[in-house]
Structure formats: C-alpha cells, structure tokens
Amino acid sequence: MFGELVTQLTSPAFISHVVATVLAVLIAIAIAIAIAVPSGLVLGSVPAVRQATRAVIEFLRPIPSVALIPLALVMLGFGPETKITLAVYAALWPILFNTIYALDELDPLLVETSRVFGTGRVGVLFRVALPSALPFVLTGIRLAATTALIVMVSVELMAGSQIGLGYFIMEARSGPGRMDQVLVGTVVAGAIGVLLNNGLERVRRRWVAW
C-alpha cells in the first residue's frame, strides 16, 4: 500500500484529483462564511428575527445535505456547482450557530461600556461584538471545514463529479477493484482533514491571542 501511495503521490492525475477536491472545499468554506457570519450576526443581535426564523432553521438544519444530492444533481448537473452547493449547505450550520452562540455569550458589561462611550448600535456590532465573537466563529469555521470535506468527498463518490478524490476512490473500487488504491485515496482524504483542522486551529491561536 505504501508503494501505491508513493506512486499515486507522484502521478499528475492523482494530484489533480486532490487539488480539485481541496479547491472545491476552500471555495465552499469561503461562500459559507460569507453567508453564515452576516446572518449569524443579524440573528444573534436581533431577537425578533431570530424568533421568527427559528422554526424554519430548526426544520432545515436536520435535513442531511446528502439527501439533497439527487435534487442537486438533476438541477445543477454533474459539474462542480453541485458538490460546492451541497458542501456550502452543510458548512453553513456550524458557522451560523457558533456566531449566534458567540453573541449570546457576549458580556453585556462590554456592550454597555461601549454604549456609554457613545458607540452606536452598528459600531458595537463591528467593534465589540465581532471581535469578541471571533474565537467562536473560528471554531465554527474549523468544524465547517471538516464537514465540507466530508460532504465534498461523498458527493464525488456518488458520481456527482468527473474529478476529485471521491471520484478517484469510487473508480478504483468499481473498475479494477483495487483495494490499495481505495485505501490510498481514503488515507489522503484523512490527511487533508488533518491539515485543514490543524491549519485552522493554528490560525485561531494566532489571531485570537487574547
């Protein structure tokens, strides 16, 4: 198996599968952050909106993203849009909930102090709430990255793509039934997971030094 690992790691075809998956994961995370953090800030700071959308969110959240695979396939086709959309859907929730949770945990004293100094509502949001929420948000992003990777690989497995690590694994199984190649793909997927997780943990430690 180690021989196969070396062979694959030096093969351009395999590398392009890996790059395709990692790139798609990164795009998905970026889109998920762009949607979830602003929504989380609104939901976390305006109780009326949160109360009103609660039922919708509680209903949408438990729908597993993989259940949407058939739907996304027929609507978006077999291109990268499908897997990215589904990964975004899965990655949204950890970021959204961690952002809301962070605002809940916000020290009221901190808010009051800055209000006393004449900071407006929006000012408080950006200068007090967001910085103090950052550690939680980053944790959410880290969780979301793992989730996005999982969804990405599984969508690729379900033939929702013509390239990617999941596709490589599925091909190795269904074609020649090469257990060694399947395992190589799995281990590499795991390694990407470790790198993503540790990288984001390091970012969190560096940025959130307080």
Binding site: T146, S154, L157, G166, I169, R173, T186, A189, G193, N197
Partner: peptide, 9 residues
C-alpha cells in the same frame, strides 16, 4: 479526520 464517506468503498 478520515471523512467517513471515503470509507464507504
């Protein structure tokens, strides 16, 4: 950190 779906095969 191994994505569980990758283990399906």
């Amino acid at each position: 950190s191994i994505p569980p779906p990758a283990l399906v095969p």
